[in-house]
Write a protein that binds this DNA or RNA. Sequence first.
RNA 1: GUGGCUGUAGCUCAGUCGGUAGAGUCCCGGAUUGUGAUUCCGGUUGUCGCGGGUUCGAGCCCCGUCAGCCACCCCA
Length: 439
Amino acid sequence: MASKELQAVRGMNDIFPEESAGWQALEGDLRMLLALYDYGEVRLPLLESTELFARAIGDATDIVQKEMYTFADRNGDSLTLRPEGTAGCVRAAIQARSIRGQTPRYYYMGPMFRHERPQKGRYRQFHQLGVEVFGLPAAGTDAEVIALSARILRTAGVTASLQINSLGSPAARIHYRTLLLDYLRPRRGELCADCRERMERNPLRVLDCKVPACQEIARMAPHLVDHLDEDSAAHFASLQSLLTALDIPYLVNHSLVRGLDYYNRTVFEWVTDALGAQGTVLAGGRYDGLVAQLGGADTPAIGFAVGLERLLALQALQGRGVEAPRPLLFIGALEDIAVAGAWRIAERLRDAGISVVTGGPATFKNVMKQAERSRARFQALIGAEQIAGAALILKEQAGEGRWQGDPEALYEGLRSLGVDFPQHAPHTVPNFATARTSS
RNA sequence: GUGGCUGUAGCUCAGUCGGUAGAGUCCCGGAUUGUGAUUCCGGUUGUCGCGGGUUCGAGCCCCGUCAGCCACCCCA
C-alpha cells in the first residue's frame, strides 16, 4: 500500500554530490585562510538553552521574538536550535575558562536555524562560517578582522561592497536614541506604520526603512557618529585610517545598525545587489559587553559571520563553479565469471591510492555506457578472455591514450599513461596523533 | 507572520469548451555490431503535489492544505 511521500522540512535543503563538491572546495579555502590569521576551530552544540539566546541576542529582537526553533526537552528545559553562532561561542569560551588572560581567535562552521519564510538566499536551515576574537579592544583588531573578511570574499571570487558604522558605547547609544526620538516625534505622522512601531521597539531601525517618505526623514536625522563618546569616536577614526592603509575601500553607512542587541562600536556589512532582497553576504561587529553580560570576566570581543549559501550563490552567478571530482579508472566486468578478478584488481589499485569505480557485469554495450557515465579518466574492460589470459585494453575515455597488457599489470599501464601515484592518501600521521592523546 | 505566481513521466514541457493521459529526452531489456557510432524491436515512462467539494463525469471549476519561487518583514 502506497503511503504519502515523506519530504524534507520546509526551508531545509538536501545537498547532493554535484553541489557538495562546491561546498567542500569553499570550506577548504576558508579553513586555509583562517589558518593564515591563526584562527582555531571550535565545534559547538547546535542546541543550547533558550535562555542563552534570549539574554545574548535580546528579548525584543525579531530573532528571539519569532524566529527561533524552540521546544521543551524531556525534562521540561526549554531548548533552542542556534539561530546564530556568537552566543554559543561566548558561552563555550566562558565555560572553558579559555579567555582568562588569553586572546583566542575562534571560528566555527555549520548550520544555523531560523523560522522565517524561505526565499532566495534565505533558508530555515542555513550555514555560516563565524569567527570571534576575544580580549583585544583596539581598533587594529577591528581592521584585521575586516581584512580577513575582505580576503574571504576576494578568495571566493565574489565582489561585494563594505559598509561600516559605529554604534558607540551603550551610554552614547542611549543618549543618541533620545536625540533621535526627539527628532522623529514631531514627524511621526509622516512615517509608515512599521516605522511608528519601530519608534517604540528600536528607533534606530527607522533609519534604514525602505519606504521613500521614511528615507526622506531619515536622511535629515541626526547622525549617530556625530554623537559618539570620545573613546568610540577615536576608535572609529583609527579604524578608518587603518582600512585606508590596508587598501580596503569602505562606505560609512549612518543607518547601519544591525539587528542584534549585543553590538557596540564597530559594525560592518558586505553587501551585494546580486542576490535580490537578501543582499548581506557577510556581517559582524564588536560586542565588548557580551562576555560580562553572560557571566564571564569583562572581555572585549569582535566577530562576524558569512552566509555560505549566499557566498556559493554569488560564486555561481559569477561563473565560479567547481567540478565534482571524477574517478581515475573505470573497471568493467563483462561476464559473471570476470567479476571476482575485476574486483580484486580494483581493490589492489585502491591500495595504491587510485580511485576506481566498477561496473558490470552486463552486455558489452551497456558496460561501455556505464564507463562513459562514470566520468572516469580511463576505462578497462575485463571479460572471460582476460580471465583466461588475454591482454586487456586500457584507454583514455576522452583522449587518445592507450595501453595493452596483462590485467595484473594495470598499475604499470596507468603509470605509462602518465598517472602519478598515489592519487589519494590518508592524512593522519600515526606518530604525531599517539603522542598527543591522553585519554 | 502577510501577499503574488507556480505544482502533469526521472528531466524539459504540451493538454482546446469539463468528456478515455500526451511529445521530446532519458532509462531498462533484446537483435545487429565487437572497444563508445548507426539502425531495428520491445518495455516502465503517471495516485495529474495532497485532501475535500460541485458534476453523470474534474488535470481543467470551487474550498482547504503542503511544497517551490519572488517580494514584504527581517537577516547570513
